[in-house]
């Protein structure tokens, strides 16, 4: 099975989009670390890039890769190999290639310029976010036969998680501002992988602010080991659940 992944990976890492993505991340990271007067400000800008670019590229690239590989997948399925295996190999290769791009493009500069706890968290959540978004993209792509429709859905998902969701959260927080919402907001972050990544990094970067009024609760929760398990666990769920749904749907569908 891993042999198949190896061959697919060999193909993907030669893909122009992946190379461009790696180059873009590398260029931006190096520029930021060199231009900003301190590395924490560079990390901050990297966070913004991470929260926008990683989900967007991961999702769009995975979707297009799936549709472009459709005939190849069919050919593979004519071989004595199960559908779930084929899809999982495709997922694995896509995920690995995107993670590699992240590690080279962002990981190496962070390691060189700011190898602290914040940098480490940034890369780790970046990896989680990449894999989660790839899962979501596969699910969306498997579910819709039409390429344009699939890409449309994935773009909407990105827009929703990156922007709309936070808007809804803010609206809720203002609508119900008379109620104690601290614990509720913790639950809300779990329903958006981008928020989950953001909050994890925020806890490393803005500890002082988070120790304020509501922040103490977040810090107590996310900073504790149960919190780390919670964040990690939910992120894992964001990776595994869409992947499972994608594989289930792929196992049933007509190609």
């Amino acid at each position: 099975m891993f042999k198949l992944s190896k061959y697919i990976l060999y193909d993907i890492i030669r893909n122009k989009v992946i190379l461009a993505y790696t180059g873009f991340l590398l260029l931006v990271s190096l520029l930021l670390f060199n231009l900003e007067e301190n590395s924490s400000k560079a990390i901050l800008s990297l966070l913004n890039i991470q929260l926008i670019t990683i989900p967007l590229i991961s999702m769009i690239f995975s979707t297009i890769h799936y549709y472009n590989s459709y005939e190849f997948i069919e050919m593979l399925l004519a071989q004595p190999i199960s559908r779930t295996k084929v899809l999982f190999c495709e997922y694995l290769s896509t995920g690995i290639s995107l993670v590699l791009a992240l590690l080279i493009g962002m990981g190496i500069p962070v390691l060189l310029y700011s190898s602290g706890e914040t940098g480490f968290t940034l890369i780790l959540t970046g990896i989680g976010l990449t894999l989660a978004c790839t899962s979501l993209a596969y699910w969306a792509a498997v579910k819709s036969r039409d390429k344009a429709r699939g890409i449309g859905i994935v773009l909407l998902l990105w827009f929703y998680f990156a922007l709309i969701y936070d808007g809804i959260v803010m609206m809720l927080l203002f609508t119900f501002s008379d109620y104690p919402l601290e614990k509720f907001t913790l639950v809300l972050t779990a329903f958006n992988p981008i928020d989950l990544a953001r909050v994890s990094i925020m806890l490393k970067m803005d500890v002082s602010a988070l120790m304020g009024y509501t922040g103490a609760l977040y810090k107590d929760f996310f900073g504790s080991s149960t919190g780390i398990f919670f964040t990690g666990g939910i992120m894992l769920l964001w990776i595994l659940l869409p992947l499972y749904l994608a594989m289930r749907s792929f196992g049933k569908k007509d190609l």
């Binding site: 042999k3 198949l4 061959y7 697919i8 060999y10 193909d11 993907i12 030669r14 893909n15 472009n68 590989s69 459709y70 005939e71 190849f72 069919e74 050919m75 593979l76 004519a78 071989q79 004595p80 190999i81």
Partner: peptide, 23 residues
Amino acid sequence: PQIGRYPDHMKVGQIFKLLKNLR
């Protein structure tokens, strides 16, 4: 198949090798 499309950067030899591995 009616239309054969393969990964862009996979080499002809690799495809045969891959299939031999799978089979």
